[in-house]
Amino acid sequence: MVQSLNRTLDMKMGEDSNIILLGEDIGKDGGVFRVTEGLQAKYGEDRVIDTPLVELGIVGMAIGMSMNGLKPIPEIQFQDFIFTAFDQIVNQMAKMRYRSGGTITVPLVLRTPYGGGIRGGLYHSQSGESYFVHTSGLKVVTPSNPYDAKGLLSSSLDSKDPVIFLEPKRLYRSGKMEVPDEDYRIPLGKAKLLHEGDSVSIITYGSMVPAVLKTVTDNSLDADVLDLRTLSPMDRDSIIASARKTGRVVIVHEAPRTLGMGAEISALISESSIEYLYAPILRVTGPDVPFPYRLEDLYLPNSSRILSAVNRVLQFR
């Protein structure tokens, strides 16, 4: 995925000189995960800006750039460090179009790695997607493979609205696949059905997608696996269609359960389709505790927990 993101950024920067990258250690160092490797050497220090250590400044500057003709792509080194910029995101970025009556817009793509799986402990592992999904005015996107990463990043750059582009860092260097050289788009707001079945719907996204798919194939489950790809706005139609087809739903994500995406998806299905359901909607998520260092594997949802939830909804009567 790192390579796909890097090549997409390279391609887009080559096409549009108004695209500016800014963030900590993204230039000479190429980013701590190497997503921006080689781009400063190619496009110069004016377009790939190594910034001081100030997240609110990175985001605030990016907003100001986008209001004046540029297309900035700020990077926050770890999503865990985004919170000092939260005011800028929630009160400036997300509200600018609304509070200016549509006369000022903030087209930008904020990239940030999120989630666990790298032994990063409390502050290099969090999944904070709900904070952003809860804020109207933002779009929230997360790819689960290199192909989608390119198509979603391209669509995010087309967007006239600010996009929070969450990169599951656990998948940065796994899941090799062919990524076409040519330009293509994956529309925002569209989920993808990765596996089809009639007995149960497993709804997931980002870093949990490979684990869910492996659970389904290893256990020959007759399951729909829906990868949301965009968390805000969610693909309501695909969620409802799958839930109505199978009548049994499990939602899987890494973020803590309380007010996570699972709660919203569950409410959406209940409100629209309760008469189609045969079983309660179950959530397999990270627990409501801070993200741990040594016990990371216990924290992250795994195949056995996913399978156990699937069995519970299948056997419910």
Partner: peptide, 30 residues
């Protein structure tokens, strides 16, 4: 607010426009 007169929009949280001004100046120069 008066975008047509180059007056940007005012947020209530104080000083939060200052980093934006810096970004806008960067864009101007670029």
């Amino acid at each position: 607010l008066a975008r047509d007169y180059n007056f940007m929009s005012v947020p209530s949280p104080v000083a939060t426009n200052l980093p934006l001004a810096v970004g806008t100046a960067y864009a101007n120069r670029y």
